[in-house]
Design a protein around this nucleic acid. Structure first.
Lengths: 348, 348
DNA sequence: ACACGGCATGAGAGCGCTCTCAGATCTTCT
DNA sequence: AGAAGATCTGAGAGCGCTCTCATGCCGTGT
């Protein structure tokens, strides 16, 4: 690769000199090449490859005010982010969609409160054109920071304030958690289960709350026995513990709806350790239908949500929003809620 | 938040005007504040907070030639990246170390060949100050691109050309895969296993090759029976299939060393499906000791490598390298190889 | 009193790019 | 042939920041 005499990377100027044209013309060629004579364009293209020219992104975004990157903010204080395949799948969907649009993915992990400031500063500094934000808990300060930074934002999972009327109306992608939960619990009932427990996620997340509401719906009009409700915190260990608690509080239970596959894997272990056979003694239904669900013993009946697709939808929504801001500011976009579907295997 | 009259974010100029000083002074305060009188510094600080000023990163890195970000490139064409907790853990280590240094993490996923160009362009465009690169396969074009971009690079796992003398001497962090494999296989032998098979990863990765070499070491001086070697591609499904193949080719096997926990989970399923009891009939040892290893039935004996720590080490090495380039260019850094340790559970 | 060194501050030049606008060139039509 | 229009190209002004260098100010030593 040929460099400029100054030893750094070649600049537009260098390419222009080599091609015998002005900077402006090179710029035009590099950015699409419209309105440049074929012969000149070819000359410039050759100069570009000869010199190994790559536009300097800082200089470009300084003037265009766009960075060609989107920040993905994951706010999980716990080790959960990487233990749960959920995030991975979603990231994958996002990554696919963004690379198709030649947009870069910036991953910002926020674990501590201090990280939160850092993330806020980062967003405000204009490193990204938009934000995808995940797995918010109630009272999370991040949405406010995103709002303050003025960046278009799409949420993964309905934010808590979405329907309260307070705050701006957020753009989000979610699955119909409540309906999925209803399907799961109805399925257990149809199989003859009478004492159906639930292991929930942290209830300050809407997805966890919605699934619990779905559980209630399916039992209505009867009110659920509070001894049949335990919080598993969306982790495998939490699932183990919650299951143990349930067995102690309600030894006669014959079904469990576990609000994530990861927790369900823990619950299955506890059941096995207590000598309960699945599905003969206790029916178990999970939620997510991530790969490991099919690998448990017995294979897990669960509620499928296409997580990768949700990631893709989030990215797509944000990209549309970015384009809309540039071209048709009035355009109203709306949130997406995808359907959930029961997948029956052997656990319940 | 107060904005400038032009509607955009406030600039240095605006802060300077409000504080009644020059741009240069504001810049000094923002970047540490050395050599500015206390009283002036306070005035500037107040102006900064009043206006909600945040430095524009593009402008800054245009002149400093640094971005305050490090790119993490994961080159996995398969769905493996997110199915295997391995990457997640490593990312987590990296993320921790980088945020402590207030450096941003840019995640670049490369799945297709086209992505490779995109990643190369991205790096060359100067979006990052350095690169962390993972899970390379032989003949991967990425290292060459990283090299060409002139960015300091640290590899996760010893790159294939590290000891060949060809190419530049790479900086990497790895575990002692060969020794870990030796420990695993020796353990199986000590437990009386005589026909020990191996399920390898893709052999164009050094980690997979090293583990296979360790397997050979432990059987030496006897040469391994080729019917006892199968490639599981580092995926759970691959592990299932490889195990089935081994059982068909060598029904008398009584031990398996599986080169990743994820593959081992697959192998256990296949063994169960074939009615082989673990560990009574067949002893199984995995590799990685990621969370799910303890959850299999029976819990997996495996080789522990502290993946998160490896991530941290990678980040630390890169950061040192970046500082070295800035301050003491002659400074020689060296790669790190961490120890592996057998963790005995119940599977073998 | 003056010269001198040290410190705090400001003026101004650029970093590499995009984009507007005006000028140059080439068509095409009357 | 000349003018109107369309097409192509270049000059130049910034984008927001950092950093060098010159300048002004102070205290100290002679």
């Amino acid at each position: 690769m040929v460099r400029t005499s100054k030893g750094g990377r070649p600049t537009l100027e260098a390419v222009a000199a080599r091609a015998g044209v002005s900077r402006a013309t090179v710029s035009r060629v590099v950015n699409g090449g419209a309105g440049v004579r074929d012969e000149v364009r070819e000359r410039v293209r050759r100069a570009v490859t000869d010199l190994g020219y790559v536009p300097n992104s800082a200089a470009r975004s300084l003037v265009t005010r766009r960075t060609g990157a989107v920040a993905v903010v994951i706010a999980e204080p716990e080790a959960r982010v990487f233990a749960d395949p959920f995030f991975g799948r979603q990231l994958r969907g996002i990554s696919r969609e963004l690379s198709a649009a030649d947009i870069q993915l910036l991953l910002l992990l926020q674990e501590t409160r201090a990280d939160c400031d850092r993330v806020g500063r980062y967003l405000a500094a204009g490193h990204a054109d938009g934000v995808l934000m995940f797995s918010l808990h109630r009272d999370d300060p991040l949405p406010a920071m995103a709002e303050a930074s003025g960046l278009p934002t799409v949420y993964g999972g309905r934010p808590g304030w979405a329907d309260t009327g307070r705050g701006p109306r957020p753009l989000y992608v979610d699955t119909d958690n409540r309906d999925g939960a209803r399907q799961a619990v109805r399925h257990l009932r149809e199989r003859g289960r009478r004492r159906i427990a639930v292991i929930t996620g942290p209830l300050d997340q809407t997805s966890a709350q919605d699934r619990l509401d779905g559980y209630r719906d399916a039992l209505a009009p009867a009110a659920p026995d509070p001894r049949l409700i335990a919080d598993g915190g969306f982790t495998a260990q939490g699932g183990e513990r919650a299951m143990a608690g349930l067995l102690a509080a309600a030894p006669d239970l014959d079904g469990v709806f576990v609000c994530s596959d990861l927790m369900a894997s823990g619950a299955l272990r506890t059941l096995r350790a207590h000598g309960r056979r699945v599905p003969q003694d206790v029916g178990v239904v999970g939620y997510d239908d991530l790969d490991p669900a099919a690998w448990t013993d017995p294979p897990l009946t669960t509620v499928r949500q296409d997580v990768e697709e949700m990631g893709r939808l989030m990215a797509r929504l944000l990209l549309r929003r970015l384009r809309a801001d540039a071209e048709a500011p009035g355009d109203e976009l709306s949130s997406v809620v995808t359907a959930a579907r029961l997948v029956v295997r052997e656990s319940g």
